[in-house]
Each structure stands twice: as structure tokens, then as C-alpha cells.
Design a protein around this nucleic acid. Structure first.
Lengths: 249, 249
DNA sequence: CGAATCTTTGAAGGAGATCAACTATAGTGG
DNA sequence: CCACTATAGTTGATCTCCTTCAAAGATTCG
């Protein structure tokens, strides 16, 4: 409690730093700070601290008390659950603009790790709660993002429960492509920041099956694989058809 | 718009009907109306209309404009998505106290049907939005329920992606048992209100596999099946072990 | 009682997992 | 700079489990 308060004091004193401040933030228009008035944004910035993560570094662990929430500004996180025997299910990836802590009440319900070096805005939950009381728009924004996350999670249930492996992978590539576009990157040569194990654990497959599906899609002329982490979509249309026509775009 | 207003007028006039009113509602302590002050509850009741559904009746359809939201008071609903070729994924079941419309913005993202005859409280979205502005506790309550739904959906992703068929079914039975207890029914002889097709479409299996898993669990002495829709859990402990130890209870 | 629906069980086939080996890429240290 | 190692990805062979196809109970309802 004491440390939280002193952190707040320290942050409040730091007005509008030239670089890295919200004003010139790359994800200002998409993150929690989107649709906030200037005063709310200032208040949000005043309780914000920055944090960086190395590849593979754990940010929060399932079951730990939820003391901080985060807004990802750059990089990529994976959100997952482990079974006692080591099986892992990645429930989703967090991209720049995404918020960590939407689902959690009291304790984190999942573990979050950096897939690549990442930078985040960090907020103490207690301060964020106070801020939400002062600025209803902030709470509304988080509520909207939570609904969006719920729809996405339910879409994933369909993918996991009813799509065949190739359909899963096609659907995944299309989502990645759309996501890249959303954060202002090229939609077509899709860059896979995560490895095969991550993809497998996200789609409920093994790495061998993921690899074979990539090969099959390449053989069928749907994609090219200049290298293992770059996918060139040759026919968005055909790929969508393979995705079980599940993809709305 | 006009019809909505006239409905409001009609409802506002009906004060505290003796039966079916919120005061003696069975799910008052669990539904959206939990944790509401009397004035908020009165306001909520004033815009509420009652609705009944027959078995199999559709309540809302995916893609349709979200004009109403619902609170289930009795019965059971299934929430699902269909693929063009007929494959279906049930993302969840709604039990008494659950709310329909948590994930949706503008249009319904999934179809909802009654599994058994059900009764609901119905609210016009426009009126509910007004009410949420007037009573922040209402919005907070919906937000809490949305977070809960998100955690549940992510748990389901783990079940769908990483559990074997018997583990899925064991996990499902334990959830059903806990749910029954939550709404004041016996936890142990679990009553299956849904059929094998529903269970299969919820767990990402075929009905044959579901049936065989039931048989296997019966053979192994984990459960008894007095009839197809009644499951007697013989060892909660063993069942939890089979569920991949995924079940926290 | 008989039709319809639901559930269970059986037999066959196939798809994905597992096990194993090989290739490619990146990072390290001599 | 280049071997050497470690890690990641691909490919192959086999096997197992789930799906598919089929038919036989069981239950419900008119």
C-alpha cells in the first residue's frame, strides 16, 4: 500500500515527458485510452508506469493476486493455462493496444508471458479502480473491451471444438493478417512472431500437425513460406474457404 | 421505438404483482438483480416483462439486432454458433440467474434456444441502458457477470483444446454438479437436461463418443446411469482426477 | 400399440498423435 | 571465420483413438 502511494506521487510529478508519453503513443487510438477525454487521459497517464519484458519473461502468473493491470504498447504476449501434467492451452495472444486483466477479479486467472520483447503501461489496480470511479468513460471503455474479449473467446471455442486442423490454421492466419492490419502493419506477408509450439497450444494441436498443415497449404498453393516465420497469403479468398467459411471478413 | 415506450408505460403501471415479481424471485440473489439496492431493483422491475419459451424455441438469432436482453429465471438455454455446413459449437449453457446479452454489442453474436421450457425476464436494451446510467450498480453488476463469463469461456477453451474425451465429460459432469448446487438443487444425482447431441456439440465430440465415454465411466465405477439423463457420481474425487485434475473444487 | 426419436453398441476406416530421425537456423566459443 | 552445439522445424512411419457408418435397444408420445 505504501509503495503504491509513493509510486503514484512519483508519477504524478512527471508531467508530459517528451518521449513515450501518451501523446505520441502508437496505440493511443486503440488501447484503453481510446475514446477518453483529455482530462481522463491525463489522469490515466499520471498513474502509469512503463515496463519492458524480455522474450519468455513472465508478467503475471495464474492464481497470483491481481495487483496490477497492463496495457500492451509493443510486442506480443501469450495468455495460457497449464494442466498439472504439463499440457498447455493458450487462450489468446495480446497485441499492442490489448489490455491484460479484463477477465480477472482478485487473482489472475491465467499466466501471461512475453512472446517477443514487449513494452507495457502498468497500473496499480487500486489506483485504476479509483480512476474508474472518477472517470466513468474509463470503466465503459474497459467494459467494451471485455465484451470484445468474450466474443473472441467464444469464437475460439468454435475453432477448437469444430474445426479440422487445416481449417484451424487457415482461420488463425486470417486472424493474424487482420490483426496486423489493425495495428498498421502490412496484412499480407504475415509475420509469425510465435513459434510452432505456441500455435499448436493455441489451436489444440501438436507441433507436427501444425507443420504438416503448413506444408499442405503450401502444396495446395494457398500460401508461400519464404521462411518458417513468414507466411505469404496467395489467395485470401481460398484461404477463407478452407477456414470453414467461418471467417467473417 | 414507439412500441418500446408504450411497453414501458404499461409495465410501470404494474406495481408489485403478488406472484412472479422480483420480491419472491428464486434467482434474486444470483441474477443481475443481486447486489442491487431496493430503488434500483424497483426500477429494474418496472421495465421488466416476462417471457416463456417452449423446448427448442429460439430466443435470439446470431446476427440479429440486439434489441432486448434477458435474465433467465427458470429452465435452460443453449448458446451456439453454426457453421455453413451445419457443424455446431455450443459455447455454453445458461442456467437460472444467468444473463443473455453480456457479450453482444449491437447485434447478437450467437443464437440462443431453450433446451427445456424456460421463463425469462426481458428488458429493452434502450431502457436497460438508461437504467444503467441512473444506477451505476447495475452496470457494475453486468460488468462482473461479463468477467465471470469470460473466465468461463477461457476455461472452456482449455477443455476443448487439451482434454481427452473422458476428461471432457468428467469435467462437464463436475461443472453440472456444482451448478446444480449453486441454484439450490442436489449436487449429486446430476440431472442432464440436455441431450447427447447438445453435450457433444458443447465438448467438441460426436454423440457416439459421448455415449461411449459414459459407458466407460460407468464400467470403471465412477458413475451410475439409472437412466440416460441421470448421472449418479460415485466418487467425486476419482471423477475430478479423471477430469485432468483441471477441476478446482 | 406403433411411430418417432434418442441412446447405445458394433465394425471399419481414417485422421491426428506419437515416436523417431533428419534438416535448418541461430547462437557460441575456439 | 568456422566448426560445434543447441534449438526449432520438417518429414516419415506407426499406432491409437476417435469418427464414421450401421444397426440394434430404449424411451417417449400420440
Amino acid at each position: 500500500m505504501v509503495s503504491v502511494l509513493s509510486a503514484q506521487t512519483k508519477q504524478t510529478q512527471r508531467h508530459r515527458e517528451p518521449c513515450g508519453a501518451c501523446a505520441d503513443c502508437e496505440v493511443r487510438k486503440m488501447a484503453i485510452c481510446a475514446a477518453l477525454q483529455d482530462d481522463a487521459l491525463d489522469a490515466l497517464e499520471s498513474i502509469m508506469t512503463s515496463r519492458k519484458l524480455e522474450t519468455g519473461e513472465m508478467l503475471v502468473e495464474e492464481g497470483a493476486p491481481k495487483l496490477k493491470v497492463f496495457s500492451l504498447t509493443a510486442g506480443l504476449l501469450r495468455l495460457f493455462t497449464l494442466l498439472p501434467d504439463g499440457r498447455r492451452q493458450i487462450s489468446g495472444f495480446l497485441y499492442p493496444g490489448d489490455y491484460l486483466g479484463l477477465a480477472d477479479d482478485g487473482t489472475y486467472s491465467q499466466t501471461a508471458e512475453a512472446v517477443v520483447p514487449s513494452t507495457l503501461c502498468s497500473f496499480a489496480v487500486s489506483e485504476m479502480d479509483d480512476l474508474m470511479d472518477a472517470h466513468p468513460a474509463l470503466k465503459d471503455r474497459l467494459y467494451v473491451m471485455t465484451r470484445e474479449a468474450l466474443r473472441q473467446s467464444r469464437d475460439n471455442q468454435l475453432v477448437l471444438g469444430r474445426l479440422a486442423p487445416v481449417e484451424k490454421l487457415a482461420s488463425f492466419l486470417l486472424v493474424l493478417s487482420a490483426q496486423a492490419e489493425r495495428i498498421g502493419q502490412p496484412a499480407n506477408p504475415v509475420h509469425l512472431a510465435m513459434n510452432r509450439t505456441d500455435i499448436a497450444d493455441y489451436l489444440g494441436l501438436t507441433i507436427e500437425t501444425v507443420s504438416r498443415c503448413f506444408t499442405k497449404m503450401r502444396t495446395q498453393g494457398l500460401i508461400q513460406l519464404p521462411d518458417a516465420n513468414t507466411v505469404s497469403i496467395l489467395s485470401h479468398r481460398s484461404l477463407a474457404a478452407v477456414a470453414g467459411a467461418e471467417f467473417k471478413s
